[in-house]
């Protein structure tokens, strides 16, 4: 392999790593917000406290 290929692999792996981490944070955030909305919707006054 050439040095350019090694350089490409290093930078490529960094972008992939950062993108996957950002994607995982966004996915977890969306999941939690969806659950909060679901719980809030089940409560008549907008709070789900004590319903479960």
């Amino acid at each position: 392999m050439t040095h350019v290929q090694y350089l490409g692999i290093a930078f490529g792996l960094v972008w992939i790593g950062l993108a996957l981490y950002l994607f995982s944070i966004a996915r977890r955030q969306a999941k939690l917000e969806a659950e909060i909305s679901k719980l809030s919707a089940r409560s008549p006054n907008g709070s789900a406290g004590g319903l479960d």
Partner: peptide, 8 residues
């Protein structure tokens, strides 16, 4: 957000 959900 996780803490908020836990509180709910």
């Amino acid at each position: 957000t996780a803490a908020q959900l836990e509180a709910l």
